[in-house]
Write a protein that binds this DNA or RNA. Structure first.
Length: 203
DNA sequence: TCAATGATGGGCT
DNA sequence: GCCCATCATTGAA
């Protein structure tokens, strides 16, 4: 059903995931989101990665086979979803930061609790997960195995629209050019430097 | 066992 | 633009 090739390092896969579609089917209905913004995280070589200090119970999924979903809780409130890439045994994942709701907008709006609509429904990793209805129970889910959460190819994205920039909100290695997004897309999060970012972080 | 930290988002000033 | 909620995970004592 899809030929998405995830068996490569995150920074190679991240731009290819732009335009891909994440779908979550529940008894309430189906919500699909076309990805508009991603960030690449690797393992031991990436100070900003959860896997930087090696394998732990939380980040174990990142070390697993490509195509699985790594979900973690941020700041006690928000869920963030990653798509695991690369080789089994080596940490590598792509954070899905933003997307455009292409199916089930009513349900997505309901989950977000009214007020929000349009591009804001899935802008930012936490919002995206809420719109999709993704929580910790989906940690480790195989996105290529069918329901409930699946990743599939969407409409092709022209490479000319893809932009590369610094990662958002990370306190380390924030200037790595590992963030990929679609130029001019209203669903892309505004760049924000982490409050805790070291003034002179490397490279 | 304890204290610090964070790949955020929303609301207030 | 700044501040704050809120908790699992982590690393140190």
């Amino acid at each position: 059903m899809n030929v998405l090739d995830l068996a490569h390092p995150a920074e190679e896969v991240a731009p290819k995931l732009l335009g891909a579609v994440l779908t979550h089917e529940t008894s309430e209905g189906t919500v699909s989101i076309a990805i508009t913004e991603t960030e690449a995280y690797s393992g031991a070589a990436d100070p900003a990665s959860h896997a930087y200090r090696g394998r732990t119970p939380r980040n174990a999924v990142m070390f697993g086979p490509a195509g699985h979903m790594y979900v973690y809780r941020s700041h006690g409130l928000h869920w963030c979803a990653n798509i695991v890439t690369g080789t089994d045994g080596i940490a590598s994942a792509v954070l899905v930061r933003a997307g455009r709701v292409v199916e089930g907008e009513d349900l997505a709006r309901e989950r977000r609790g009214a007020k929000v609509e349009g591009p804001r429904l899935a802008r930012g990793p936490g919002n995206l997960c809420r719109a999709l209805g993704i929580t910790a129970e989906h940690n480790g889910t195989d996105l290529l195995a069918g329901a409930p959460v699946t990743l599939s190819e969407g409409e092709p994205v022209s490479e000319g629209l893809i932009r590369i920039g610094p990662r958002v909100g990370v306190s380390k290695a924030h200037d790595w050019q590992h963030r990929f997004y679609l130029a001019g897309d209203p669903t892309v999060s505004a760049y924000r430097l982490s409050p805790r970012a070291k003034p002179s972080a490397g490279a």
